[in-house]
């Protein structure tokens, strides 16, 4: 894995914007995540310092909400729905195929940080079951081969 040094300058702008709002940890973390893709320890430390709260508090907020990622994410996110409708229409076989192709379990990220694979429960598009979200695109009526084709085409 390549060690990259984190440029905290963009975060400082966010902190500057919110410095008068002591309670604004959530929007600050959201903006920080939009910048870095996830919330590395250096970012939580910087947020804590900038917001004048203990890092334990920032960490508490970041671990409370599932929207915050404390581990580095892939460049792409493949979210396969395994809600009732999708499950009945074969989501399990898609999950198995994707896990095999990527060599990781659901909830994990490929070592090259290309794809993060997640299993979620209902994307609200049951009519398209089995359905997945690839980054911000909804893909319906999936079968394993189609899922793998989409995966392989992700840069």
């Amino acid at each position: 894995m390549v060690e990259e040094t984190l440029d905290l300058a963009p975060l400082q702008d966010v902190l500057e914007e919110y410095k008068q709002q002591p309670g604004a940890i959530i929007p600050v973390l959201q903006k920080a995540q939009a910048i870095y893709g996830w919330l590395p320890p250096e970012v939580l430390d910087a947020v804590a310092r900038g917001m004048h709260v203990p890092v334990s508090r920032v960490y508490g907020v970041a671990t409370f909400y599932s929207q915050f990622y404390l581990e580095r994410r892939g460049r792409h996110t493949f979210r396969q729905c395994d809600g009732t409708a999708c499950h009945v229409r074969g989501a399990a076989s898609i999950i198995e195929a994707v896990e095999k192709r990527l060599g990781i379990q659901a909830g994990e990220t490929t070592p090259d940080y290309r794809v993060t694979f997640e299993v979620v429960y209902c994307l609200g598009s049951c009519g398209l079951a089995p359905v997945a979200m690839v980054d911000d695109q909804v893909v319906g009526h999936l079968v394993p081969s189609k899922a793998l084709e989409i995966l392989d085409n992700l840069e």
Binding site: L44, P54, S56, Y65
Partner: peptide, 19 residues
């Protein structure tokens, strides 16, 4: 100081240090 915080949510909640 602030060594301790709440981590996670629901049944998983635990008092812990950051990380």
């Amino acid at each position: 100081i602030g060594c301790w915080g709440f981590r996670s949510r629901g049944y998983d909640t635990i008092i812990d240090t950051a990380y």
